[in-house]
Deep mutational scan, measured.
Amino acid sequence: TQVHVDGVTYTFSNPEEAKKFADEMAKRKGGTWEIKDGHIHVE
């Protein structure tokens, strides 16, 4: 599962880990995350 944050791609083999990471990054940025085309995007 790929997580895209500010133009950087992080790859996780476990989708649950990817979601936890996205959640943390979104909180830090004061933003949100969503799943697009099977990838997670942090806004």
Rank of each mutant, 00 (worst) to 15 (best):
K20H: 10
V3Q: 00
E16K: 06
E24T: 08
S13L: 12
V42D: 02
G38Q: 04
V5I: 09
Q2W: 10
D23V: 11
F12R: 00
F12C: 12
K36S: 09
V42M: 06
T1F: 11
H39W: 06
E43S: 14
I35W: 15
F12D: 00
E16I: 09
T32C: 15
V8A: 11
A26K: 03
I40E: 02
A18M: 01
K29Q: 09
A22C: 04
R28H: 11
D23A: 12
E16N: 09
E24V: 09
V8R: 13
Q2G: 04
K36D: 07
Q2V: 13
R28V: 13
D6H: 06
K29D: 09
W33E: 05
H4I: 10
N14V: 07
E43G: 12
A26S: 06
V5Q: 01
T32Y: 15
A22M: 03
H41K: 07
V5C: 14
M25E: 12
A26H: 03
Y10S: 03
V8P: 02
N14M: 06
T9P: 04
A26E: 02
H39S: 09
K27E: 08
N14F: 07
K29C: 15
E16V: 09
H39L: 10
P15K: 09
H39A: 13
G38R: 01
V8E: 12
D37P: 00
K29W: 15
F12Q: 00
T11F: 14
E34H: 13
H41S: 08
D6I: 02
F12W: 01
E16H: 08
V5K: 01
T32M: 13
K36R: 10
G30F: 02
G30N: 11
F21N: 00
W33R: 05
T9V: 14
K20I: 12
F21W: 06
S13E: 12
G7M: 04
T1G: 03
V5A: 07
H4W: 13
N14G: 07
G7R: 04
T32N: 13
D23L: 07
V42H: 02
G30W: 00
T1R: 04
A26N: 03
A18D: 00
M25Y: 08
P15S: 11
D37F: 05
F21Q: 00
G31N: 03
A26L: 06
A26P: 01
H4V: 09
G30Q: 05
D37I: 02
W33M: 10
Y10A: 03
E43P: 05
A26Y: 02
A18K: 00
F12K: 00
K27S: 08
F21L: 01
T9G: 03
D6R: 04
H4E: 05
G30A: 03
T11I: 13
R28G: 09
T9K: 09
T9W: 13
V3A: 01
K29S: 14
T11C: 14
E16P: 03
A18C: 07
K20N: 11
M25G: 01
K20V: 10
D37H: 04
K19D: 03
K19N: 05
W33K: 06
I35S: 07
F21G: 00
I40M: 04
T32V: 10
G7S: 06
G30P: 01
K19C: 15
F12T: 00
K29R: 13
A22T: 01
G38S: 04
G38D: 05
V5T: 04
T32L: 07
Q2E: 10
V3D: 00
D37N: 07
S13R: 07
K36P: 05
A18P: 00
G30M: 03
H39R: 04
E16M: 09
T9R: 09
S13A: 12
A26W: 02
K27D: 07
H4L: 06
Y10Q: 03
E17W: 06
D6Y: 05
K36Y: 13
E43M: 15
K20M: 11
I35T: 09
H39N: 07
K36T: 10
K27T: 09
E34P: 05
V42P: 02
M25C: 14
M25Q: 11
T32F: 15
A26R: 03
K29M: 15
D23Q: 12
A18T: 01
V3Y: 01
D6Q: 06
M25W: 09
I40H: 01
K36I: 15
V5H: 06
T1N: 06
K29L: 15
G30T: 03
E43R: 14
E16A: 09
H41D: 07
A22L: 03
E17K: 07
H39F: 07
A22N: 01
E43V: 15
K20R: 12
W33A: 10
E17M: 10
M25I: 12
G31D: 04
G31F: 06
E24K: 09
V3P: 00
K20W: 08
A22E: 02
E24P: 00
V3L: 03
H41A: 05
F21T: 01
M25N: 04
D6G: 08
G7E: 07
K20G: 08
E24Q: 09
K27N: 08
E34C: 14
P15Y: 15
K19E: 11
E17A: 11
G38K: 03
E16L: 09
H41W: 15
G7W: 05
K20C: 15
H41Q: 08
V8S: 08
E43Q: 14
K19Q: 10
Y10W: 07
D6P: 01
E34K: 06
H4Q: 04
H39C: 15
T32D: 09
I35Q: 09
P15R: 07
W33C: 13
A22W: 02
T1E: 03
D37M: 04
G30I: 01
T9E: 08
E43N: 14
D6T: 03
S13I: 10
A18I: 00
V8H: 12
Q2H: 14
W33V: 15
N14H: 09
K36G: 05
D23T: 12
E17H: 09
D23W: 06
E24R: 08
Y10N: 03
G38T: 03
E16G: 07
K29N: 14
S13K: 09
W33F: 07
K27Q: 10
E43A: 11
Q2T: 12
K36M: 13
